[in-house]
């Protein structure tokens, strides 16, 4: 082993970066498999939302929703809930990262000759896969209590993938928040700060028409509404959209949001990561 001093610092190769990312993703996923109660709790809440909203509000709201939903509130609700649980699920990224930081696991990783990026990408990958599992369970319950997509199977699948891509983008937002607040306790509450107003001031549960003007302008243009509308367009048809909107247009706008959020927050998260741990 030679210790020649060179001007160029050693780098982690691309193939090592891939291996490291797989190793870290696997490690993070294993936690959900070994502690199945985590996944269970993560699913109970959205299923409860689904049942409560459907049976409590369904009767009253069923009349006011666009006819493409076939008069069933659940058809209207399901695409919105998929976005809601994707948003809530992404919060796990902040909590998982802060737990690892407080336990010294991140220090261990950083002292190893591994790709630095793998810590964050391995975390966000694992969280989106975990989100996929929760979404699948939700859909199973949804189908059981009467949800039916009104378009075609490929469009329905495209909608699910769009929801998961959004979850992935939000994971980077949550990673940034987690790295900023440091402690798991603080992360618990900090993640809901942006999520709650965005989810409720949106078209997730109800059409936005009845909101006061100032709120409706915000609600109609914020990403959660845009993506919820795209999902409804894909799963129910163009009739689910506001006049003048097209399914393609909403999907494109959604993709723009997803790519934009991911790009901005991946950079922010990596930067915060460098600072948070030194």
């Amino acid at each position: 082993m030679s210790a020649v001093t060179t001007a160029l610092p050693s780098r982690v190769s691309l193939s090592k970066t891939v291996t490291d990312t797989v190793v870290i993703t696997r490690r993070n996923l294993l936690r959900n498999v070994r502690l199945p109660q985590l996944l269970l709790f993560a699913t109970v809440q959205p299923v409860m939302f689904l049942l409560l909203f459907n049976y409590v509000f369904g009767g009253a709201i069923g009349q006011t929703i666009p006819p493409v939903a076939g008069g069933e509130y659940i058809n209207w609700l399901m695409p919105g809930l998929l976005i809601q649980i994707s948003a809530f699920g992404a919060g796990q990224t902040a909590i998982g990262l802060t737990e690892d930081m407080s336990k010294g696991v991140i220090d261990r990783f950083r002292s190893l000759p591994m790709a630095r990026s793998a810590v964050l990408t391995g975390r966000t990958f694992a969280d989106v896969l975990r989100n996929a599992a929760v979404v699948s369970l939700m859909l199973a319950v949804g189908f059981a209590i009467g949800f039916r997509y009104q378009t075609s199977f490929p469009l329905f699948v495209a909608g699910v993938l769009l929801a998961l891509s959004f979850a992935y983008a939000l994971s980077w937002v949550m990673a940034t928040i987690g790295l900023l607040v440091h402690s798991p306790e603080a992360a618990q509450s900090a993640v809901f700060l942006p999520i709650f107003p965005l989810v409720f001031a949106s078209s997730v549960f109800l059409p936005t028409q009845t909101m006061p003007d100032w709120l409706r302008v915000f609600a109609d243009h914020q990403p959660i509404t845009v993506i919820t509308n795209a999902l409804r367009g894909l799963m129910l048809g163009e009739g689910a959209l506001l006049p003048g909107q097209t399914v393609g247009g909403q999907v494109l706008a959604s993709l723009a949001w997803i790519v934009g959020i991911t790009a901005v927050f991946a950079v922010l998260a990596v930067r915060t990561y460098r600072r948070a741990v030194s």
Binding site: L35, K103, V105
Partner: peptide
Amino acid sequence: GLAGQFAAVDEYQ
């Protein structure tokens, strides 16, 4: 190699 002040091993592994 580093062993930090608190054992950084994964409980569930």
